[in-house]
Design a protein around this nucleic acid. Structure first.
Length: 467
RNA sequence: GUCCCCAUCGUCUAGAGGCCUAGGACACCACCCUUUCAAGGUGGAGACACGGGUUCGAACCCCGUUGGGGACGCCA
């Protein structure tokens, strides 16, 4: 049997961290087993679903490089099939119409709270009532008959065996009074129709698994294997919600996080492979299994994400990073040097090892991509305001003019010798030089920079600042 | 309130009864390197929630307590 997993987000908002990890796990599990990974948009609640949310989810999936099979399924397109199954269930006496009003339901909720607070709210009052008693002015919902006694055990691939008494489950609604299917019904039918073999989803669905189990049984189908993965919590330990900085993955993209860093981080949140921390997509596919998914919730830690991101920045190709910088909206409008791309690529090792994210990378790369004269920050300005510093730079420029070759090692030697001759500490020269070349007091190695900039550009910038 | 789940350094985790004086990573501290800032290197501090069992032996198994989380919608 080939493995089929699915990610089934509801399009009511962005693709958040937790959803992204669920998608990742489903993807990895399917790929590991050479099976299929499906995407199904759970839009049965048309009122709350938006096109923007769908676009955000699709975008997030693509950004994370989680490709899915067989196109995108929209649950709302299967309503006819959903209704058909409901009719069948009614005909077989496994489901029934319920004419309770919302007010009656609210009253039931109140009374269960007083009488001990049972999980079972609906009292089943229409379960065995004659259809002839139905009030004509009320549009009924359809409820599924749940077993009245006994217990049900789910063999969860992550949580182990979980058992629940059947009398804690009430007859839940499968078809709304407006004739639309509920989530509970739609997942079951669609999972069956799509041949889903493994349902990997958030822990918050664990209780639903029991309801769905009985719905599957009523339909005469085999439920998929379940794997309920723990939720991701905020730094404070509470459920990740919009209030707790549960940002969409697009927000991290904007922060300058690389998708592979995000995937690596998410993977290690709740799953482990010994002491391995840096795990490529290929290794993840090879290693991933449900047995090593932890059972306790994890807290989101920006520090670790940042650290991972810094790592992936260091190993990314200069060409790729240069392209990211050059296509950034903040950079695009600027008056760039014709030499910008070459400089970026050559200077990238020095730049990338100092950045935590692409935003920092961009900020630190302006001195390479901009034309002379480059903007100066306050500290650079004050360093260059010193007249002896400027004298030194002028003398250095004269020396550099005579350089017979122009590379990092040679420049290093020349500047050091120059400092020694003048009985100056290297820093006395390096800092004004840095200010002149980069407009900043912080940068990669100035020798590397001079080499990348080239003789003409270096001298031009020195000239600019020394006078 | 009822039901379900969970519990190792601050955080993510390794750990499947003796390999544990509990390992790694992030963060933190110190030192080294050093033209700035990073990176890198070395070292340090830091945890088995508590109480009972079971066993020759328990972080690991069982029970309880406490703590945390989740679910109780004509949302998904």
């Amino acid at each position: 049997m080939t493995v089929v997993t699915r990610f089934a987000p509801s399009p009511t908002g962005f693709l958040h961290i937790g959803g992204a990890r669920t998608a990742l796990f489903n993807y990895l599990f399917a790929r590991h087993h050479g099976g299929k990974f499906l995407l199904r948009i759970e839009d049965t609640d048309r009122k709350r679903s938006t096109d923007e949310a769908i676009a955000a989810i699709l975008h997030g999936m693509k950004w994370l490089n989680l490709d899915w099979n067989d196109g995108t399924t929209y649950q709302s397109q299967n309503v006819d099939r959903h209704r058909e199954v409901v009719e069948l269930l009614i005909a077989e006496g496994k489901a029934y119409r319920c004419y309770c009003t919302p007010e009656e339901l609210a009253a039931m909720r109140e009374s269960t709270k007083f009488s001990g607070g049972s999980t079972r709210v609906y009292d089943g009052r229409w379960r065995d009532r004659e259809p002839a008693e139905a009030p004509a002015d009320i549009k009924p919902v359809v409820r599924i008959k749940m077993p009245l006694d006994g217990e049900t055990t789910i063999h969860d691939l992550v949580q182990g065996n979980v058992t629940k008494a059947n009398d804690t489950l009430d007859d839940f609604i499968i078809l709304r009074s407006d004739g639309t299917p509920t989530y509970m019904l739609a997942v079951v039918i669609d999972d069956h129709d799509m041949g889903v073999t493994h349902a990997i989803r958030g822990d918050d669905h664990l209780n639903n698994a029991f309801r769905q189990h009985h719905l599957f049984t009523a339909c005469g189908w085999q439920p998929p294997d379940y794997a309920h993965i723990p939720l991701i919590h905020g730094t404070d330990g509470a459920k990740l919600s919009k209030r707790h900085g549960a940002l969409g993955v697009d927000a991290y993209e904007e922060m300058g996080i690389l998708p592979e860093a995000m995937c690596n981080y998410l993977l290690r949140l709740g799953w482990s492979h010994g002491d391995d921390e840096i795990i490529s997509r290929e290794q993840a596919v090879e290693w991933f299994d449900l047995g090593n998914v932890g059972r306790s919730p994890a807290r989101f830690d920006m520090n670790k994400l940042t650290n991972l991101n810094a790592h992936y920045l260091k190993v990314a190709t200069p060409e790729r990073l240069a392209a990211i910088i050059l296509s950034d909206t903040e950079v695009v409008g600027k008056n760039l040097s014709t030499d910008a791309e070459r400089r970026l690529i050559e200077g990238m090792p020095g730049l990338a090892s100092r950045a935590n994210n692409t935003r920092e990378l961009i900020d630190s790369s302006y001195f390479y991509i901009l034309n002379n004269p480059i903007p100066m920050n306050g500290k650079a300005l004050s360093m260059l305001a010193d007249s002896t510093a400027r004298e030194t730079l002028k003398a250095l420029a004269e020396l550099l003019q005579k350089a017979t070759s122009w590379n990092e090692i040679k420049l290093d030697r020349m500047v050091r010798d120059f400092a020694e001759c003048r009985d100056l500490k290297l820093g006395k020269i390096a800092q004004p030089l840095r200010a002149a070349l980069t407009g900043s007091h912080v940068s990669p190695s100035i020798f590397e920079i001079m080499a990348v900039l080239g003789r003409d550009e270096t001298l031009a910038r020195l000239e600019n600042s020394a006078n």
